[in-house]
């Protein structure tokens, strides 16, 4: 586990390596716009991994992030049916696991949540992400009191569920 302040510091360190990562991704055929997304995603995964108690960092953060970048880019390229270098193919299997699969599922839901209103998004992020209490959240997003905030949270959750189910309905037929 790692404190938020230390995490910030570590993120800063990793951002200094961004030019290296970008160069690396370019050698794998990734354009610079995708590269930035991939890098951000990899950092996010790194942050989330560091939070889970089971995770043990066996390599330098930089190499972990770089490998994650590679994996993410591999997935993206496969989806977009781009040419994948054989070198990329070979080393991928080792990294992919159950955690990663679930993470990708969460990522999908995350992007679905972006369809919610801004207030709903903020509310859910504050409550689930940062663990704020309802009183503070109500103040922050301009609701009368914590009860209103709680009711609003319920509505947001319902809306989110609907969106996810919609998403699954539209996605699954394609899969099949």
């Amino acid at each position: 586990m790692i404190g938020p302040a230390d995490m910030q510091q570590e993120l800063k360190q990793l951002y200094r390596k961004w030019p290296d990562i970008r160069r690396y991704l370019k050698t794998l055929g990734c354009d610079s716009v995708s590269a930035e997304d991939v890098f951000q995603e990899a950092l996010l995964i790194y942050v989330r991994k560091r939070e889970s108690s089971e995770f043990e960092l066996t390599v330098e953060p930089f190499f972990y992030v770089r490998n994650t970048c590679k994996l993410l880019w591999y997935n993206q390229a496969r989806k977009e049916q781009k040419q994948i270098s054989t070198e990329l193919h070979e080393n991928i299997a080792a990294i992919e696991d159950g955690w990663f699969e679930k993470e990708m599922k969460i990522r999908e839901v995350e992007s679905t949540l972006e369809k919610l209103g801004a207030q709903c998004q903020e509310l859910l992020q504050l409550f689930y992400g940062l663990g704020w209490n309802m009183v503070d959240i109500a103040k922050k997003i301009g609701l009368r009191n914590d009860k209103v905030a709680k009711a609003q949270k319920y509505r947001c959750l319902q809306k989110a569920k609907e969106l996810i189910q919609e998403q699954e309905l539209t996605v699954e037929p394609i899969k099949a």
Partner: peptide, 26 residues
């Protein structure tokens, strides 16, 4: 499961914000 997913996703979104802020600052 759905709940869990949404919670994780919301958390993930908040973490993404942190990273974006770091990037901006960087």
């Amino acid at each position: 499961e759905m709940h869990e997913l949404i919670q994780s996703a919301a958390k993930r979104a908040s973490q993404r914000m942190v990273i974006k802020q770091t990037a901006k600052a960087h």
